[in-house]
Design a binder for these strands. Structure first.
Lengths: 265, 265
DNA sequence: ATTCGCGCTTGAACGCGTTCAAGCGATGAC
DNA sequence: GTCATCGCTTGAACGCGTTCAAGCGCGAAT
């Protein structure tokens, strides 16, 4: 039912496919067709997506009409809707592509250091760089992403693969640092999700940021990361054990379930 | 009912008068006409807004068409657009009304206690109660609110009056508690805005909450408020002076400017 | 009394996202 | 060869938000 793998596969010949499974949880899957049955089908789908993404970047989301996409791709409007059940699902292409590019770029750039604070800042700055070309119409993107009913919401089930990729990156941010071994194991397990939430906040800030080159957001990251790192570091001291315990409970009971991790463990 | 005209009158700040055709001023001004010139005008405006809000609640936002609003109100579609330049601006009525009702209800309910944690929890719970009738279509509301370009965004200039009201409420939450005198004066000055942001996070959680009566959000408030209170309380100890100083700087430099308070002080 | 100006009002028309009944073409069965 | 099946394709049509040129009505000016 789900097409995330397919969507991912269309861009950048990567290998993250194979997640289709078919065991659909929600009866109503949104977004597009199920399994493609032919090669031609997949080609058409990719053509439409590529065309849409190009036009989005050229003209912006709202000014790009479905008719224009269809015409430019040389297909009919109805055909576009055969593959993407709504215009907004064409955005998923950006979402997936960005997630992938970000993870790759961040891994690359933080490889040289084991300092947690530095690694975290690199991971966030890398996102800003990766997303920069899309800042122009990020507003529209964000708008639909903010809809809890939309599968484009970063919290939705449909976004799970991309979210998992991002969380995994932050796990590496932490695990690759000299801080990780010094921390409570349980905390190390929880932190990646919290750091992902941190990224979501940065994204929120970025979307609203009107300064040139989103310089304000970059500065926000530079200033807030060391503080975050220091707070995390403080958790090592015995005095904070009670408050850390409460914080962990809060995360486990109210944050993780929201982003698709069952509270039961 | 009567507060509607009042709430809309609140924005009669200044220069954005003159018909929208005025100068090519920065972007779109407000969502509606400037100064009403006649009594009848104001009546028609109120009628349309009331009708819209009633239909929104009866059928939901998307299922309520502008034509239906106009018909039900006994005016033409064009007339509705004369007063509200887009459908989304009709939502502002909710926004304003809720802000007002929330502040009143919260003040009332927290009057009996001076315990900071309790007062804060009441303020947040009060919001959940006030907003409960609108949870159904809050998704749509939130969607447009998330658009940085929209004047409906809680961070926008146009939302300043409502935001100021809310921040003022949180100032009272703090000032009316026994905690306030014990805190650094500068912190007392900053905290109301941070608490408002806290409310925004709760709202975010609430929008995505699908549990009956948004019980999960309520539990989230019950659990997180004591922690927040404890963290704030910790700021009193000398050991944390450096980190508190950094936090204050972060707030002043990156949070306040975002919500319309000039960084210059 | 007549005219003028201007707020207010109208509803047809436009553009866009989306739907759907109908058609096409390759593949396989007989 | 004929026919049915089914994945893929079509484009006219629908509903909705929004726009706009045109009109209406009422007080002020003449």
């Amino acid at each position: 039912m789900d097409d995330l793998a397919a969507t991912n596969g269309t861009n950048t010949a990567n290998g993250t496919n194979g997640v289709d499974g078919g065991a659909g949880s929600p009866a109503e899957s949104r977004g597009s067709r199920a399994q493609p049955k032919t090669d031609k089908s997949e080609q058409t789908r990719a053509l439409i997506l590529e065309t849409a993404m190009r036009l989005f970047q050229e003209r912006g989301y709202e000014k790009t009409t479905m008719r224009a996409i269809a015409t430019e791709a040389g297909v009919s409007v109805g055909n576009a809707y055969y593959y993407f059940s709504a215009k907004e699902f064409l955005i998923q292409g950006f979402y997936d592509r960005m997630t992938y590019e970000h993870a790759a770029d961040a891994r690359n750039r933080m490889a040289h250091t084991r300092d947690f604070s530095e690694r975290l800042e690199i991971a966030l700055a890398s996102w800003l760089d990766t997303a920069a070309p899309y800042h122009e119409f990020s507003a529209q993107f964000f708008r639909t992403a903010a809809d809890p009913n939309s599968s484009l919401s970063p919290f939705s089930n449909e976004s799970h693969p991309a979210r998992a990729t991002a969380v995994e990156l932050f796990r590496e941010v932490l695990q690759g640092s000299e801080l990780a071994p010094k921390l409570d194991a349980e905390l190390v397990d929880l932190l990646p999700d919290v750091l992902w939430l941190y990224l979501m906040i940065v994204v929120l800030y970025w979307v609203f940021d009107r300064t040139p080159d989103t310089e304000r957001t970059r500065e926000f990251v530079r200033r807030s990361v060391p503080m975050a790192a220091r707070v995390i570091n403080l958790s090592r001291y015995r005095v904070f054990r009670p408050i850390v315990r409460d914080a962990k409970g809060l995360i486990q009971d109210f944050i993780l379930p929201t982003i698709g991790k069952t509270a039961v463990k």
